[in-house]
Amino acid sequence: MKSRPKKSPHKAAFEEIYERHSREVWALVYARWLNADVALDIMQETFLRLWKQWQEGSEIVNPRAWVLRVARNLAEDHAKSAFRRFGTQAPQTMNGVEGRDVLPLEGMAKEETFGQLRKELEQLPAADREILTLRYALDYDTDEIAEVLDINPTAVHMRLSRARQRLADRLTAQGLGAKHE
């Protein structure tokens, strides 16, 4: 029998979960590594594992919590493997920011600014980077961030304010805060 072009309810439900939570997974892994490609790889691996679990008939009560937990574990495993292979950090994390848009003239200045911002982000605690990534990559508000990270909204607000303040101070000291428009 040939495969039917119509999506099965099983796959449709899975794609709904993917569409709803894949960006959150990417954001958390990106916050850990500040590397978009690594975050994308780990996000896809996470959902591949979820798919296999579904195919095997395993019942997952809370898929969102499941994928977030698996993604965190995979990100930590990546940290260990990167340390084993390269010493401290993977070579690609030492490079500048990998821009998605290719802009020859404006892009260079922007990439330089992004590179310095990235260096400052690396100095922040991972928990603060998670909040910043969810806030600015996904446009999540405080309550949504608190729900994803399972922490108090007040703590989210405080951490976000502190991280922004620290970044603003450092970038202003380097003359980047006023330069970027």
Binding site: L117, L132, R135, H180
Partner: peptide, 19 residues
């Protein structure tokens, strides 16, 4: 200005189109 910078940075990092 800080928000603009962070918005630009993180949006720039996200894969486009989303796979």
């Amino acid at each position: 200005e800080m928000d603009d910078l962070l918005n630009d940075y993180f949006k720039n990092q996200m894969p486009k189109p989303w796979p």
